[in-house]
Simulated assay, not measured.
Amino acid sequence: MNGREMAARIRSGTGFIAALDQSGGSTPRTLRDYGIADGRWQGEDEMFALIHAMRTRIITSPAFTGDKIIGAILFEKTMDGEVDGKPVPQVLIERNIVPFLKVDRGLEDEDEAEGGGVQLMKPIEDLDALLLRARDKGIFGTKMRSVIRSANCAGIEQIVAQQFAVGQRILAAGFMPILEPEYDIRALDRAVGEAMLRDTLLRHLDGLPEGMDVMLKLSIPVEANLYRPIVAHPRVVRVAALSGGYARSKACRELARNEGVIASFSRALLEGLHERMSDDEFDRALAAAIDAIFRASMQKIATSPGQPE
């Protein structure tokens, strides 16, 4: 696929985006869920070697193809790694899967934001150099995450403004940005805060000039189809949903209630996979996960306006 073909696939392709971008903070839990205890590795190099082996097993599985997966988000070390002697992004492209790169460097503490209640992204001081490397690797787009913990209007504005500011730098460098202002699904005021987030996103989207299109990755909202105006916005290429800590069955059930939103699941995609599985067992389990997430992304359930979860 060339760049134009990747853009068309992301805009209108049938399928979902796999999130394989667990970083240093989330990798130990991912390995434990996969059956690899903390004592199996010493230091980051060994930890990332183990997670790369897991990702390699996923990417090379016969279940992991462009038939149901349109894109995959990679961690930086995965982008720089190889599968069967080929760069990982090249392997994905050969499978008709568009490669994205996680570019954020983690989260600030809540007290760094005005009024608290949110975690902004840490400065991405090496963004320009990272994007140059990503271009050489064949990466199509990027993803960056910040987190909303409570319905603080000023904090939500800060998060969205930061996402759009960095997103415009990424657009200027020739990449498609996925903006991810995640709303913590454990927040008690989530319904109120998600409405604030929707309105703030729409205001910033309205301010984008024609041709500066973005993608959004959002938590599955309490109110079904809350983000429909964002899905329909002319500056939005695609809206994806993270699983946010939901089990796969719950995440798929809630996703299916939101028209036009596809999955970009990480933990829910990997749920049930285990290092000790035979290749056949592993491939069957991964195929079942992909099938369930694909159906939730493409086959929607009619809901009444304002219907809560």
Rank of each mutant, 00 (worst) to 15 (best):
R198I: 11
C153G: 14
V91Q: 00
R4P: 02
E194F: 02
I59K: 00
P234G: 13
H52L: 15
D206G: 03
L31I: 03
A173M: 14
A37V: 10
G117F: 11
A8D: 14
A7F: 06
R284H: 07
Q42W: 11
L31V: 03
A72C: 15
Q119H: 14
D67H: 09
G39A: 14
I93C: 04
T14I: 07
F175N: 03
R4F: 12
P123F: 14
P28F: 03
I139A: 11
I178N: 02
K250L: 14
A289F: 01
G141Y: 05
M298L: 09
I97A: 02
R145W: 13
K143W: 06
M277D: 09
D189A: 07
R55D: 15
V261E: 00
T142M: 01
V166W: 00
A240D: 12
L188M: 14
A292W: 03
D38R: 10
L226D: 06
R9C: 12
K137D: 11
K86N: 13
E180A: 03
H274K: 01
V261R: 00
V236E: 05
R284M: 10
P87Q: 15
E5Q: 05
I159K: 01
F75N: 13
A251F: 05
I178D: 07
R267M: 09
G13F: 13
R57I: 04
Y34A: 05
G260D: 07
A247I: 10
G211F: 08
K143G: 11
L120D: 11
I36Q: 07
L101T: 07
R135E: 15
G24K: 12
G244T: 15
D21R: 02
R57G: 03
G306S: 11
L286P: 02
A154D: 15
K143R: 01
D189Q: 07
R190E: 08
G39L: 05
E180D: 10
K143E: 04
E180M: 01
L242A: 06
G167L: 01
D21V: 08
G106A: 10
H233C: 09
M144L: 13
A154G: 10
R105G: 06
F16K: 03
I97E: 09
R11N: 02
L218A: 05
T142P: 12
I69G: 01
D291S: 06
A172H: 12
G39K: 03
G85D: 13
I69L: 10
D199E: 05
V239T: 03
R190G: 06
S243F: 08
